[in-house]
Amino acid sequence: MRKTRTGWLLLAPSMIILFVVGIVPFIYVLYVGFFDWNLFSASREMNFTGVDNYRQLVFDPLFLDALWVTIRFTFFAVVSQLIIGFFLAQMLLRDFPGKSFFRTIHTIPLMIAPIAIGAIWRLLTIPGFGPVPFLLDRWFDFDFNIGTNASQAFLAIVIMDIWHWTPFVTLTMLAGLSALPVEPREAALVDGANGWQVFRYITLPQMQPVVLTVLFIRIMDGLRTVDEINMLTNGGGPGTSTRTVGIHIFRVVFPQTDYGYGSAMSLLTLYLTIVACWFLFVSLTQVRRR
């Protein structure tokens, strides 16, 4: 290993930027989280209230609901993405004419701004004008209305997220699969293993680090999804059935200007995300260390 001073020097610019635009705001939010501070309360000052914000948070049904919505949303979306992405990556492993065309088309959703994705899906699903409810009604006589039906709205945001992020999973899985050594698989086939056995006992264990990595990235980003859901369901409706914790924080900090409570909420969410991701990270490094 080389002189560590040069190493620190190389690392420094990144760390300085992350410190200034990342850690410094974090410290501020941490600080504000211990205060009762709302610009439009009778006393506008910041009043130190210790852990009162957190005390209130662990009982706040709106916050806990939002958290639960977020967790369910992330769970369903990420699991589906993993399954579909893995499957599609397998399908791309083999060469066939037109492969790169299909692959390029498949990447398109990744390139669209989340806020535009929300708008597109709103246009698709808005009752009266959108083709989805229209066709469902015409073909199956099925009443699809994301403004009224909470489970349909939830389904819509999950499907939208699957549509948006599966390409990323596919590409990462594909990169992983292409990099796998082929000998073990061939050896197993020679030994008479069937396709499923090869997949279950060879490919899957080999892919474990990739799966963990994708899981990590998707969970990390899924938990902070705001723009597209906010746009699609117009702020998390019907009721609060699609109000993710990101949207909820947004509503508490922006219109309610409840900076103290919103900061605490933000930190608690960050805390839960970090803990969840830390477990994945540890299992990832432990897998690698072996």
Binding site: N38, F40, S41, L62, T148, N149, A150, G237, P238, G239, T240, S241, R251, V252, P255, Q256, T257, D258
Partner: peptide
Amino acid sequence: PQVREVIAPFIYQAIG
């Protein structure tokens, strides 16, 4: 807006 945000979720739920 502070009070509106607190009341509104109940109206949303009633609509749903």
